[in-house]
Design a protein around this nucleic acid. Structure first.
Lengths: 206, 206, 206, 206
DNA sequence: CATGAATGAGGATTCATTCAT
DNA sequence: CATGAATGAATCCTCATTCAT
């Protein structure tokens, strides 16, 4: 794998789009080459194998999914909590553009499909599973930190921050999962409704 | 596809076990034949194609996953609600035996893997997606019915039964998903903790 | 690799002919399939890989090269010595037919080419080298046994049987090598001349 | 192909070493580039194709193998005969250094491997076969010349010089061949023993 | 001179599926 | 019912070669 060539990142992004379009079981090197607009064999100048490319492509997903979630100190807990929710459910096209050169047209669909496909692959591949586990922890900890700050400042009720973070986290992940895997069109809305209620409840002033 | 031959069902079950062992992307007709203990060509006497078999195999999963959840009239809402939770998270070996001739050794792992693989496939296959959607609705309605009965009888607080059912449902599905796809060993326990709190809250006598 | 199917042997023979026609560096599975008159993928029902097939094909060469050389007790040392020489340099079509179903048209050319190609491959492959080493020893020992018997019976002069056997063996091998690898058309005749002189010398009655 | 640039010769030598390390069937342009310590594309500035380079590389082998064998008038036939034998079986490191800038560490192994690989390729390539034929003739004639001089001067018995030269030549070639292609470690010693006996016999004073 | 990106043809291997028995 | 031989399409990957810089 070579160094800082832009091509390498372009290949990763092409793999991301191809995965969102074909799924793991059906994804071929030719599909990725098509998406890349170049000869498939070029891929092997930058990656040793299809597996290595796909593992490396996880980075693209991670960047899209959690960049910004856990980077800043917490200023306004409730606003930030709601923003994390929004970010996980509805990727901001502007931020996506900063991370990805040529994002897919429908980024929400692409993200949820890729999420399901990558997590599904993690069942069988230890390297992948290490990444999925780490990514989930990162998100849960980010939410925990926001909750903790809110509680310390008295803006949130004194709930168990880790437990509540996990609770929210489970709901958000499942929203993404159901969106990709069923015809229940309003599932995401439903999750948002539930999550909003929970946040309202935590943040309520009583 | 021929009639209700025992062989046909044995093939479906073999496909289920093979899927739990290899995953969708890696599943071959030979794998299924191995699991069946017979020549792979035999499968084509009963099913027109691999795809048809796998679609048909969804029935095995449905039987395992929801049989019993929605069949009886509701007697004791809280007990039955807790039992639905238990059933979705921890398949009862006795009941599994009634539905499946040769279940896999570790049925919890098998169930959660197959769940993720089948739902993942539903992204790409409309027939599958119709089934996943219907199955989810069936579970959500079963929970809704229990909640509604409990509320009518005054045993539960007057929550929105559909909303709460969806809430519980999302958590239960995500437990299965996280169990299969990450190294977070105690995720299922965590969901049970959260779900128990919710049920306690609904059923609380105040 | 399956058992006693005739197809397996037919594949080995096809590989032999294809090797004689294309050489090791240029030998493809498609070439072997062509020679076999069947689809190349059939080969993989009988052999795990091209390498495994080619190793197994060594047996065909061994059968052709040394069968009969070392099987019988020695009756007439000089005649048998001359016959071994003849066999190694000029395979008898009748005997070839017994060992091989469809031998190549020009068996002498084929044998010497295959010899050079297989021995060349033995440089890089330990399994092959074990076979070439064993085969050479078998031939040298067969010649040694004939010489020893002739000496014991007083029909040969009391030469060192092992040394003389090696001497004859080196010349015979090189005849095959030079025949395949140069334009020196009469090299084999030249070796026969030299070998005949040596045998005359050993068997001379003085 | 450009002129007599030093780089051109360095490429030929790199090809020689790469051939000794990988074998013909496995030799890639990248291997040669690695051995050269430079970018493989550079090779195409000096040679039109891999085939052309390898044909040109034969010169390196010829230089190593026969330089000195046939250049001088004969002074001491027996000594010179023994020296030709020694040179063909055990390349002198000093002389190798004069012909090759960076010879491989184990020159004997390299020489015998390259010999087998090149001669093997000569089966399939007329240009190569012309070279192998010419080289062999040159060696045989050099030996013949020495023998003839020895006989004329009465230092050797009046054997047929061409026949004896071929005899010695066959043995020497086969020593190289067996050394590279089998595990018979002492084959070269064995050939030397036989060849020494022959020379002793020719040179004997009776 | 020298590099490295890029191409395209070819090769080994896998696998769903068919068919004769 | 059941087997196993056989096919052919598809897939991953390699590698000689070209070209822009």
């Amino acid at each position: 794998m070579k160094g800082a060539s832009g091509t390498e990142q372009r290949i990763r992004e092409a793999a991301f789009r191809a995965l969102a379009e074909h799924g793991y079981a059906d994804l071929t090197i030719v599909d990725i080459g098509d998406e890349l607009g170049q000869n498939p064999s070029l891929i092997y100048h930058y990656f040793d194998s299809k597996d290595e490319l796909l593992l490396s492509m996880l980075d693209v997903f991670v960047d899209l999914f959690v960049t910004g979630v856990d980077e800043e100190p917490v200023h306004d807990p409730e606003a930030e909590l709601r923003q994390v929710v929004a970010q996980l459910l509805h990727p901001d096209p502007v931020r996506v553009q900063q991370v990805m050169e040529s994002p897919p047209t429908d980024i929400e669909t692409a993200m949820s499909r890729v999420f399901v496909e990558l997590w599904g692959h993690a069942i069988w591949d230890d390297d992948f599973r290490a990444e999925t586990t780490a990514l989930e922890e990162r998100v849960r900890e980010a939410i925990t930190a926001i909750l903790r700050t809110g509680i310390e400042r008295g803006e949130f009720r004194p709930v168990d921050p880790k437990l509540t973070a996990d609770h929210l986290f489970f709901l958000l992940m499942q929203a993404t999962h159901t969106r990709a895997t069923t015809n229940w069109e309003t599932a995401t809305d439903r999750v948002e409704e539930i999550v909003d209620d929970i946040i309202d409840d935590i943040a309520r002033d009583d």
